[in-house]
Design a protein around this nucleic acid. Sequence first.
DNA 1: GTAGTCAGTGAACAGTCGTACTCTGAGTTC
DNA 2: GAACTCAGAGTACGACTGTTCACTGACTAC
Lengths: 219, 219
Amino acid sequence: MSHTVGIRQAQKLKTRQALLDAALRLLEHQSLSSLGLRELTRAVGVAPTAFYRHFADVAELGVALVEETLGSLHGLIGAILAETGDAEVRIARTVDLIARHVREHPAHFRFIARERHGGVGPVRAAIAAQLDAFTEEVATALGREPVSAGWSEEDLRMLAGVYVEHMVMTASAFLSAQETGEPGAPEGPAEEQVARTARDRLRLVSLGRLHWPGRDAGR
Amino acid sequence: MSHTVGIRQAQKLKTRQALLDAALRLLEHQSLSSLGLRELTRAVGVAPTAFYRHFADVAELGVALVEETLGSLHGLIGAILAETGDAEVRIARTVDLIARHVREHPAHFRFIARERHGGVGPVRAAIAAQLDAFTEEVATALGREPVSAGWSEEDLRMLAGVYVEHMVMTASAFLSAQETGEPGAPEGPAEEQVARTARDRLRLVSLGRLHWPGRDAGR
DNA sequence: GTAGTCAGTGAACAGTCGTACTCTGAGTTC
DNA sequence: GAACTCAGAGTACGACTGTTCACTGACTAC
């Protein structure tokens, strides 16, 4: 092989990741615009100046966190949609997927929900870009289905937007549900309630989709 | 009359309102958890200690802002729902109402969108309480309509939640749309695009509502 | 093996922060 | 008109903030 990562760069990446992890932990109880650079480096155990070796801003770190959280999710929803055509199964799988992801990475999703409309511009833009990409993915996936015959591009994007928006709000609902119970509990009753409502909402949208006027004639 | 407000209390209320207004202006570019007490009093033109005569915390001021923004909106949606039964008219009026309110009080709605998942617990709770109240209002208003025959209480609340959630996200979409154009412009093309998508989403939900299985037989 | 790179250190800078004090003087009450 | 109340001013405090600079020393490239 040409060259391994190198001890040097490996250590650098390690502290960089430590910064990201500590930031995520600190951001559970505050928002990014109030996260101090010193507070963060203190939590990691490095000198304040070490921060600048990795990020120019706290905003830049925020953008990196957005990539880390949402970047790995691409293709996941498309996979579910391609997996089966049965609406009920699809709805159940989607909600389960969201529930599991939120349970495994609560801090990540709390961060996204908090900073989506937060005070740091670049982070807001990064989240919006990721969500737009999701919408585009869902739209093309939906467009491939036979049910979507006769749907305009704009209507497809509208529908995809509804689904993406629904996923975000469901994730946020799971977050508030699980902070009601203990963090170690396997599954609280509040979570099951959220899941049921989320499924019902998806059913509602699904029904609307089936009767959308665009498929027969122009409205 | 027994007694007017009194010069004393009137002045107090005036500076209190000045604090709220200045806070709202400062919060357009940052979030509440990073809003400094001194920064705020400096903007108003009073001594830092004067703040304590009105609020114990920045959080308490935030809660007051929530009341000011959402407290005046109760009954508004119910009025629209009672006004006409025609779905298309109702949808148009709702979206227009949101557009107008957001255009008239952009800072208020930005504040709500930002702090709904923000870092200040009491403010989050206050917003959630207000939105829950809205959901309850919408649910009872919907329940009075003949279309809702056979709907369970839970399903009604679910549907009402969809509407409330939709209003919040539409308001937020209008905000991002109008910050694209100049603030003085009467109505940008981006705003009309948002309005069209919002109406389509409402139509979609409306269609789903009409075909909800609960109205005929248990599913 | 030697010269160079560069992640992280530590001290120092000029600010800002929240809050505790005492004090003042206009508005209120009798 | 005298006694009282209380919104706001002013000062002072210790703690914390982001950023700069020169520095060390383990790793890297030749």
